[in-house]
Every structure is written in C-alpha cells, then in structure tokens.
Design a protein around this nucleic acid. Structure first.
Lengths: 411, 411
DNA sequence: CGGGTTTGTGTTCCTTTTGACCAAATGCTG
DNA sequence: CAGCATTTGGTCAAAAGGAACACAAACCCG
C-alpha cells in the first residue's frame, strides 16, 4: 500500500515551479551536478533544464562552472553549483546543556558554527532567547545585505507545535506554552520566517539528508539526551502527525510495573533507557549529568562489571522499545543518536537479540541498526534543513519576476 | 515539520494527468459533483474542467446529468457522476472466520457482496483460493465485456509484502510465504492486476475514505479479531513502511512481565487485548471463538460482574497501548474496529483515563477515540479502494488516445 | 416579463516543455 | 595532428494545456 494524491488542480505555471523545485532540491542534496546529470535525474529535456538553470543563475541561487570531469568523450557539461555563499539560513539550537547557532548555505555547507555550554536546569525563556541573540548576532552580521537569508530554523528539547512554533512543554527547561518562534524572530530582528521544531525530529531529518540515513526512505531516528526522543521519516518525508507532536517515543509504555516517569505516567521507555536510568543502574551520581555519564562509559570501556551490567540491562530495554517501534513503523534503518548512539557499541548485541525475538521476521529481515553519523550537531543541521524547506519547495518565490523580464528582454 | 517533495521533473503532459486524477479522485470520494463544484474544489477554470470532463465522458468513466439542485439563482450546473456501472473492481477478503467477495463501482457503490462462513483453523492456500474463486465467479460473470475491470483488491489476515502481494505469515491460517496475489490472479483468470494487503491496513483505508475517519488526515485504526492489527493514515495517506509491514501493533511490547505470545515474544499488546485474553479473563471457553465472545459481550451488557471486570481490565491494557501509539504517531482520530470496536462501549472510560495519564497533553487535546463505522465489511471495502488506486492516480491510462483524437476531430 | 446571477461555450492568448537541427568541445585512433 | 565518434549546449518552431475574456444560456425573483 503505497499511494496517495493531492487532489488539487495544476496549472502550467505549477509545472515550472515543480521543476525549479526539483532542480534546487537535487542541487541542495548533492552539492553540485552537471547539467546533463540534472537531465538524467529529473527526466526533463536539455532545453528545459537550460531555461530553468538560466533563471536560477539570474536569481543568484546557482552558478555554473566549467566542467571538472575529464576523460570522457563528448562535449563537457558545465557543473551547476548551489550558491551556498548567497543563499543561507540561520540555524539555532537549545539543547540540554548547550546553545548553538550556525550559518548554513544552500547545498548544506556550514559556513560558521558556534556552540556554548549552558548550565542545566530551568531558565526563563527571555534569558535563553537573549543568549541566543548574542550568539547569533556576529553570525548574522556576516550575512551581506544582498545575500538571501531564506529563514531561520530552530531545534528545541521540547514538544513543539508545528503550526506556529509554540513550545508546549520542555521539561528540561521548565517551560510551558512558550511562543518561541515569535520571540526569537523579534529578538533577532530578522524578517525571514523562523521555524521551530523538536530536536529529535530535526536530528532525524539531518541524518536522513546528510548523515547515516542518506538514501533511506523509511527511517527511525532515536535520540537520547536526558530524555528520549524520536524522529520518523516515512516514505521519504518526516512524519509530523496531526500537530507536529509525532515521534515522542520517550513515553512509549514498556513497563507498566516500572518506575514513575516525570510525565506522570509509569514505565515509560525513557524511565528505562534515559540518562537517569543508566546512571542509577551504574550507581553513579544522579546529579552528575553529562560528566557522570562520561564516567560510566569510560568505566564500561575499561570493563568495569557495574558499568557493563548497567549498559547491558539498558540495552535490553532499548531493544524492547525498538522492537515495538519497528513493528509499528517498519523502517529500513534505525539510527541511534545522542546518548543512545554513544552506548550503542556496548548494547548492540542486546538490541539485536531483542529485535530478533520481538519483531515480525519480515520486518526485521532488511533492517539495520546503526549509530548516527552527524554527532552532536545533528539537530542544528536539521534546523537548517527545516529552514531551507520553503526554498526547496518553491524556488519561484525567490526567482523575482524582474529577473525573468530582464532575461527575456535580453534574449 | 510538514513537508517533503518528490524531486522529479514534470512535463506538460503531467499536468493533464494530474488534473484528470484530481477530478476522478474527487468524484470517487464524493460520489457526484456539479461541474461548478469541481471548479471550486480543484481550482481549475471552467474551461479546463469542461475539456477534462469531456474526455472522461468519452472514456465512459463519468456521465453528466441535468442538475438536480433547484432553488438557487443562476444557470444550473450539470451533475457529473462517476460511472460505477462501467468502471468496477473486484474486492476479496480472507477473514478469520469468513470469506467475502464484492463488486464495487467507481464512486464506492457496492454492486454485489457475498460473504460465507469459514471454519477457523488452518487450511491450505489452494483450498481457500478455490473457495474464493467459486465465490467470485458469479460476481465476475456480471461484469460485462465492455465494462472496465480496473483491478482486484484483496484483504488478508496476515503480514503482506506490498511489492508483490506475498503473504509472509498468516498465523490464523497457518500460512508462510504464500504468493497469494499471483495464485488468485491465475485462479480467477482476470488480466486486471491483483493487489493484496493486510486486513487492518485496508480497514483503516476504508474508514478513512468512507467511514468514521472521513476528512481526517492523521488516523490510527485498530482492528481486533483473534489478533490485533493496525492501519495508519499519516498526512492523508496510508503509512506503509519500508515493505508494507507497518501497522503491526499487535506485537507492541506492553507488558514484559506478561504472558507468552504466539509470535514467540512476551507481553505483546495482543496477549492483553486479543480475543483470547478477553475470554480468559471472563473465564469463558477459550475454544469457543466468536460465539464465546458474543456471550461475554451479552453478559457484560446484562451486568455480569465477571464479564464487566474482564472488559474493564482489557480496557486498561487497550488504553496503555493506545497511549504509546498516540505519543508516537500523534493522530487526530483513533478508530476502533472489529472486536475492539465492539467492546468500546464497555471500555471507553478506561481508555480515556489511560490516554489522559499516559500521553503528552498537547497530543491528546484534539484527539478523539471513536468506534468504526463500516463494521465487518471495512477490510473488503478497503480492498476495493486499494484496487481503484491506479485509476485514481492516473486516469489517463484508461482514457484512450483514440477517444481524444476522435473528440478533437468532431470539434 | 425583465433584471440579476450563475454557469456553460468558444476564442484567443500565454506559459512551458518538447523535438529537431546544428554547433561546440572533448576523447580516441591511426 | 587530422579525422571521427560522442556527448552536450544553443536556437527556434511546434505542441500541449490552461487562463482570461466575452458571450450566451438557464435559472430565480419581484
């Protein structure tokens, strides 16, 4: 069962929009392709590609360079490059114990990236937004007035409504109903749209576009920080749910006889595989945060029985939750990020075993479980991808009518 | 996060295909619309609609009737009706204790439907396919040689690979790796394509298109028979997963301390809310099957403490599993079908309570849990919808070039 | 019966892609 | 180094399809 259509009428202008979108998306994802490669990938004719590239060049979204590729017969095809120097986004992140900002260009190149430590614990929204402003200001100053700031994307450790970027709850920050998108837009003074989404959702998006899940259409990304979050790619696109809250795997009930969760429920997955659960099993300092966790991992690597045992039990619970999710979502790839990615080497066996005994055999046959490739910056990069989305979906908005008129006159 | 594009070039011909698809899909889902309603729904101009309708009329996929609607000023707009008498599909179903077949016309009208009891227990694929052939033969005989048999769709209680209709496992039938689509195609001797999918997936599709979930884009359908299955609609389209195995919610681990499941795992959701679990709690005859279950429901309705208690406990487990799925998928609507739908009146309170304590508040705010509307025929109707899919996606295949040429000559 | 309103019909125009032909740029071969 | 094969870009006419406009038809209402 793979289908579904949008029952909306198309106009011939729509075709151009869709084709521009196809080209810009290909270039953004692959970083640079020859015209003839674009012909092959999009299925369009050379003539059509030529016209579209000309428009994108006029809009300064792409640039052409003489071919690099040598050694093949035939006239060389010029390379079309996304202009990451002209079309950029601002990416922001509020993580558990850091804040980050980056300027990312079309094509995915990270121009600048800054990250600062943040004390754990609750902090007023205004204070954090102000910190972000200070972090982002020098980066924004670097963006020229002529450059195209497509938008700003933001990753937050919290439950975010997709419509308007309202942070509904963020237990790690002590936030409830914070209209973050609007606050950040005002603080930065940028006119470009600000989009906010959950950290794990964006981490999954980044791993899908540029990390371990590249090329896979059905992916489950699990991100462990203090809590546990998930990002789902289904059929090549992020699974948002009705209001953008999908992927909250941390509160999957796996152990009704278990311990109380901070969400009010009992036996949530997070209570078994979250940071606190691991520290408790390893009899480490529960308030030690990241440092204590580093210690546990070092001990486990050194063979300490307490640490190894703590991770082994955690791995079993990790596998139980994953098995359920695999049965429900049938992904081709599971990507483990954050803390869960770090413990992966120690728990791979337990996870494999749990999946082997608890999932339907066909669903597990082609399944692979791998650690994340992008590390700590995954959510930040995902925020950039999120911010680029309007441009990829409809570049025509940025291809000004003046450009087209000018170009037609000169032709 | 709501986006995603298909990075494929569009040709000008694609526009016509897409617009034909939009019209046929609208008509199939709504059963009959005036031209002006089609203009409003598709966003196309009157002229464009006229040309497309003319083509579809020539292909005998639709027909126009003088307007029925009276009492409004202005020229009356003719009603365009899907020709359910000419374009039809064959729907088949292998349920736990019945077989069914139906002829369904474009627009969703059920022309004929037959269902026969089937003894529970294992039965050879060949035997069942033969029974289906006998069931379907008189129905197919009714389809005229000039009529368009778009395809055949089939619902099976089992895990089905979407690519080729291979039934990977069907515990209720004792099947493993049965190439059902091909077997049925040969047995029926039809040239139209045969598509096979899981019963719960198709039940969910049917409820989405024509039942309780009409108009909702994010839906979780839960179907209880002997086991428990699920069908997921995400963003308006069925969630298939990598190979079509998504939605196997029956084996979600909810109670690691629970009883052994026939899948080999322990504490699967199915072991707590499946038919067997209910019968066991009500101390009813475990081998009594459907009859015994009817008895339990009657007793509960009459107020028997044992039955009421059995259902109450079942309701708690039902709520626990649902809460997890709601957190992961963030649906707007949960539809309970089959056995789960029948016990819904008795367990609504427990389910609401479990969801209230175990899901994130924003995800539950706009959530509704309702019983299914289509009853026992939901999977069969879903199979019909599945079979219609190629026609809805690209009606141009059925609009022959001759028709177009002929019509242009006459114009 | 005439005005107001809505919608079908036909014509012309616009947009966008296609396809065919030629020119250009490269590798390969003798 | 000349010539050929190959691949690709450039140009222009043609085709396809929808949009826009003007007009006619069919209905309601007073």
């Amino acid at each position: 069962m793979t289908f579904g259509h949008d029952a909306t009428g198309l106009r011939s202008e729509t075709v151009r929009r869709a084709n521009l979108s196809a080209i810009v998306t290909e270039l953004h994802l692959h970083g640079g392709l020859t015209r003839s490669e674009l012909v092959a990938r999009t299925g369009l004719t050379r003539g059509a590609i030529r016209g579209l590239i000309r428009e994108l060049t006029a809009a300064e979204l792409v640039a052409e360079q003489p071919s690099r590729q040598r050694g093949v017969p035939g006239r060389p095809s010029p390379v079309v490059l996304p202009r990451g120097d002209r079309a950029v986004v601002l990416a922001l992140e509020i993580a558990v114990d850091s804040l980050a900002a980056a300027i990312v260009g079309l094509g995915g190149e990270v121009q600048r990236l800054v990250r600062t430590d943040r004390p754990r614990g609750h902090l007023e929204p205004d204070a954090i937004v102000d910190d972000l402003r200070r972090l982002a200001r020098p980066l924004l100053a670097q963006v020229g007035a002529d450059d195209l700031l497509i938008g700003a994307g933001m990753a937050v450790v919290g439950v975010v409504r997709s419509d308007d970027g309202l942070v509904h709850t963020a237990p790690n920050l002590g936030w409830t109903d914070v209209p973050l998108a609007g606050m950040v837009a005002r603080a930065l003074g940028v006119r470009a749209p600000v989009v906010v989404a959950n950290e794990a959702d964006l981490g999954g998006l980044a791993e899908h576009r540029r990390g371990a899940a590249r090329g896979f259409d059905d992916v489950l990304y699990i991100s462990g920080e203090v809590g546990v979050g998930g990002g789902i790619i289904a059929g090549g696109r992020p699974l948002a749910g009705a209001s953008g809250y999908a992927g909250e795997v941390g509160h999957l009930p796996v152990n009704p006889a278990g311990t109380r969760c901070r969400c009010g429920s009992t036996g949530c997955w997070e209570t078994e595989v979250g940071e606190r659960a691991i520290l408790a099993r390893a009899r480490a300092n529960l308030r030690g945060g990241g440092r204590a966790m580093d210690r546990v991992l070092e001990d486990a690597a050194a063979g300490s029985p307490a640490a190894v045992d703590a991770l082994r039990i955690t791995g079993e619970w990790l596998g139980i939750g994953l098995a359920g999710l695999v049965n429900v979502l049938n992904p081709r790839l599971v990507v483990l990020g954050g803390l869960i990615g770090r413990i992966h080497p120690f728990v791979a066996g337990e996870v494999e075993r749990a999946i082997a005994t608890r999932t339907l055999s066909p669903a597990r046959r082609d399944l692979r479980v791998v650690p994340a490739a992008l590390g700590i910056d995954a959510p930040l990069l995902g925020a950039a991808e999120h911010a680029f989305e309007p441009l990829l979906a409809d570049p025509a908005t940025w291809v000004s009518p003046q450009d087209r008129a000018l170009q037609l006159r000169s032709a």
